[in-house]
Design a protein around this nucleic acid. Structure first.
Length: 839
RNA sequence: GCGGAUGUGGUGAAAUUGGUAUACACGCCAGACUUAGGAUCUGGUGCUUUACGGCGUGGAGGUUCGAGUCCUCUCAUCCGCACCA
């Protein structure tokens, strides 16, 4: 009987289904393991990245189930999002129909992989029942003032026709479609993630060693905490007058209070209220004339260049900057304009000019900076370009800017002190005189969650002319999407719907308008790990069951792509903390251990449809079976590394399974035999050593190193060694153990053989390593002389160190001639090393 | 520029954490069985040398009896952030 994967796999998949084999206990008594692979977006078809992700997760789940843990291993669908609307635009399919039919198709594909998912806990995030609870959370957050609405500059993607969060902008482009992101002023809903900045940063320490350090650092940098001094610049009397008495002062933040005496100018962002005021009141109409060049004709070899002058105003120039993205501004180089204002230095009382500059970020530190050109590269570049004063206040080096440590000079009472030590003193000085205070700033910006799209969870708010912004009543949830929409790609389909937004104000009952923005899809993936943990029997009644959440979370092993290092993983951590503080559970961190899997590559680059270098999992499974697909995926590379696809190597994996299957005929009894070690041939002893080495490796791999590739290699070695001997008992023991070890990786064939040979008894037992297997009759020692490997000796295990040395010297006599032994080293069970020098 | 990683045969990769570098697999070579085989099985396969031997983990030093592993410097590649005051 030869190996026929299609039959075996269908048989066991059906059996597992019938037996409901992978549902966790409802009783929360046993020790638990929560194994979670990031849930897929129902794009239509599975790709190899999915196969890898779920093969890894399934190996963990099956391993821990075998160790008698109560295992939660769920799957679901991250089902809202743009592609569903694109399908509607391109193929006229309704997003809902498109999404659910994709889910049905992909569920079948996942089934053919034999993954041990809980079937009862599956859901799609577009299910109204999921939306219902999400909307409740959103309303609770609003009540806690964690959610607010404001008008501000946002990242806008014209292609996706929606706003993007900061985290969704990659090098100035949309994370999804790569279109250049524009800035736009508009209303939107925000979650105050900054309130949790310190918590999110601090708790990263508890993930040290359990998350890849790379991800931890990326999150740290993204949060970007910095400590320093915040103080105010008072405007000079004439400047106040110029500003019509509307401004007295403004705040700046610095991490370098030690350079405070070196401030020679200050710069405002172009979006700063003072800059805006000056433009609005025509106070920056001074004209500037620039000489520019233009290519008017280009022939083969020469370009005809014309020089011309252009006259414009400062106000116009500033407006141009305002319309540029941060990246464009950075490319332009430093640019700025004298605002014709001055402020008073808080310590020296000097008058300091006020500029506006393109490198000052509106969104950080109040949109204004103090400038110390002598000790800051950016300030220096700007001061040099515009001939501004430069004042050195730290001694050291010849060249400016000097950005290293040194003693202060020209700094009044602080002169002579070391700059690194004086920072806190200066902050204290400001605090004593009530001029400023020590403070902390974050790069992290609040999470904009409004999307001007149809296929998302409606934001459950109502605009009432009388009451303003009002949250929907919880008993009215979910606010569901209308089915009858026209999706054209133009504008927001919810906004264009004739009646959907009409409603009664939940507060006063008058006619009001429903919010037409929907939630960012990352909101759904921020709490799904809690939904799975809640028993489906309760899904109608609660969003998250507290007791069950506390039992199952944090996720013991989370597996997914590195591309979520910031986005999803930061949002989910944030949501976890917020829901904790809202009383839904007591968990601080959602994902206890994180494994970031590498990409699946073909010819060195990422598999993608556009490149035509994809491998279709369905075809692969049809040809070789799911077990081969899984085995290859786990064998070809360690899970965190990139996986280079190789058709020939897939054949190799297939060959191993066939060979394993074929050796069923070597098994001579239906239970684990007792073996008398001393009666065995040398080859049989070696085989046993290999089998038990694989067993030893197994727990280390599943619990520590995750190097499935080495566990598989160990099993291959064991099978090769078994093949070199013919003892039926050793074969039986070897197969008994190996099938147990391989079941999490190649479950169908391992279960089939276990059933056939041992009635699956071997899959349920706790195997222990038999140390006597490793005891050898003689031990091979390498003999090194003068640091070089020279020969080998066979030593009895009972030999003393002295005996071993004598034996080694005899064997190595040839190399010791005319030498004096300087040092003798014996490493137990390994080697002898004799250090020598000429006599 | 800042931060994080990674460099080992023709290829994917191992190496019990300082102890025989290249396990396992692919590929390649030779052989067996075959009408045939892109099937299966067996053996070989780091470089160099006629040989003894020598050299080999990106490069250069160092520590050590002993270094892929530890230290210093350096080069290359990949990823993330990107004027955060």
């Amino acid at each position: 009987m030869s190996y026929t994967p299609s039959k075996i796999e269908a048989k066991w998949q059906k059996k597992w289904d019938d037996e409901k084999a992978f549902e966790p206990d409802d009783e929360l008594t046993r020790e638990k393991k929560y194994i979670l692979s990031m849930f897929p977006f129902p794009s239509g078809r599975l790709h190899m990245g999915h196969v890898r992700n779920y093969a890894i997760g399934d190996a963990f789940a099956r391993y821990y189930r075998k160790q008698n843990f109560n295992v939660l291993h769920p799957i679901g669908w991250d089902a809202f999002g743009m592609p569903a609307e694109n399908a509607a635009i391109q193929h006229g399919r309704h997003p809902k129909e498109w999404t659910y039919s994709n889910i049905d198709y992909m569920r079948k594909e996942l089934n053919t992989l034999g993954l041990s998912f809980s079937k009862t806990r599956e859901f799609a995030t577009c299910d109204p029942l999921y939306t219902k609870w999400e909307q409740e959370f959103i309303i609770k957050m609003f009540e806690e003032k964690l959610l607010y609405r404001e008008s501000t500059t946002v990242n806008w993607c014209e292609d996706c026709h929606t706003v993007l969060a900061n985290e969704q902008v990659e090098e100035g482009c949309c994370w999804r479609c790569d279109n250049t992101v524009e800035l736009k002023e508009m209303d939107g809903y925000y979650l105050d993630i900054k309130r949790y900045a310190d918590d999110l940063l601090g708790d990263l320490d508890s993930l040290e060693g359990k998350w890849p350090s790379q991800v931890i650092t990326m999150q740290k940098n993204w949060i970007g905490k910095s400590q320093g001094l915040e103080f105010e610049f008072e405007l000079s009397p004439s400047s106040k007058e110029k500003l019509g008495g509307n401004f007295d002062k403004y705040t700046v933040f610095t991490t370098r209070p030690d350079t405070i005496y070196g401030v020679t100018y200050t710069a405002l962002a172009v979006e700063h209220p003072i800059t805006k005021y000056l433009i609005k009141h025509n106070l920056l109409n001074e004209s500037i004339t620039e000489t520019k060049t233009k290519v008017i004709e280009k022939t083969d070899k020469k370009s005809l260049i014309e020089t011309y002058t252009e006259t414009t105003t400062i106000a116009e120039k500033i407006k141009t900057i305002t319309n540029m993205t941060e990246i464009e501004r950075a490319k332009e180089g430093k640019e700025g304009y004298d605002l014709g204002l001055s402020v008073i230095h808080p310590l020296t009382g000097e008058e300091i000019p006020v500029w506006t500059a393109n490198f000052v970020l509106a969104s950080y530190g109040g949109g204004a900076v103090m400038a110390v050109p002598a000790h800051d590269e950016r300030d220096f570049e700007f001061a040099t370009k515009y001939n501004l004063a430069i004042k050195r206040v730290i001694a050291g080096g010849d060249a400016l800017p000097y950005i290293f440590e040194g003693n202060l000079e020209n700094s009044d009472m602080f002169s002579g002190l070391k700059n690194t030590e004086v920072k806190s003193q200066i902050i204290e000085h400001f605090e004593e005189k009530s001029l400023g205070k020590g403070t902390t700033n974050y790069k992290l910006r609040n999470w904009g969650i409004s999307r001007q799209r149809y296929w998302g969870a409606p934001i459950p708010f109502v605009h009432c002319d009388t009451c303003g912004l009002v949250a929907e009543k919880v008993e009215n949830l979910p606010i569901a999407l209308p089915d009858d929409v026209e999706i054209t790609g133009e504008g927001n389909p919810l906004e264009n719907h004739p009646t959907w937004s009409n409603c009664a104000c939940p507060q006063c009952g008058k006619d009001a308008k429903r919010e037409t923005d929907t939630l960012d899809t990352f909101v759904q993936s921020s709490w799904y790990q809690f939904r799975y943990a809640t028993n489906p029997k309760k899904w109608n009644d609660v969003g998250i069951d507290k007791e069950e959440a506390n039992y199952w979370l944090g996720v013991d092993q989370y597996i997914g792509g590195i591309e979520h290092a910031i986005l999803h993983l930061l949002y989910a951590r944030f949501f976890t903390k917020v829901l904790r503080d809202l009383g839904y559970h007591n968990i601080d961190e959602p994902f206890e251990n994180l494994l970031t899997q590498g990409m699946v590559l073909m010819d060195g680059s990422k598999m993608s449809k556009s490149k035509g270098n994809t491998i279709d999992p369905d075809a692969l499974i049809e040809k070789y079976g799911a077990d081969t697909a899984r085995l290859f995926t786990l064998f070809a590379a360690p899970p965190t590394k990139e996986l280079e696809w190789n058709d020939a190597a897939v054949e190799g994996a297939f060959r191993f399974i066939k060979k394993l299957y074929d050796r069923n005929k070597k098994v001579t009894s239906r239970t684990l035999p007792k073996i008398e070690q001393s009666s065995l041939s040398k080859a049989s002893k070696v085989a046993r050593v290999k089998v038990y080495e694989a067993l030893q490796k197994s727990s280390a791999v599943y619990e520590k190193t995750f190097a499935f590739n080495t566990l598989i290699a160990s099993c291959m070695e064991a099978l090769n060694a078994l093949d070199k001997q013919d003892n039926g008992d050793v074969w039986t023991e070897g197969m008994y153990i190996m099938l147990n070890l391989l079941e999490p990786i190649i479950p169908h064939v391992a279960t089939e053989l276990s059933q056939m040979l041992f009635e699956r008894e071997n899959l349920g037992v706790q195997l222990t390593v038999k140390e006597e297997v490793f005891v050898q009759d003689s031990i091979l020692y390498m003999v090194m002389i003068g640091g070089k490997k020279r020969t080998e000796i066979e030593v009895s295990p009972s030999s003393s160190k002295q005996e071993i040395l004598i034996q080694a010297k005899e064997a190595g006599a040839k190399w010791l001639e005319g030498m004096i032994i300087v040092k003798e080293i014996v490493v137990a069970n390994k080697l002898v090393n004799l250090a020598i020098k000429p006599n």
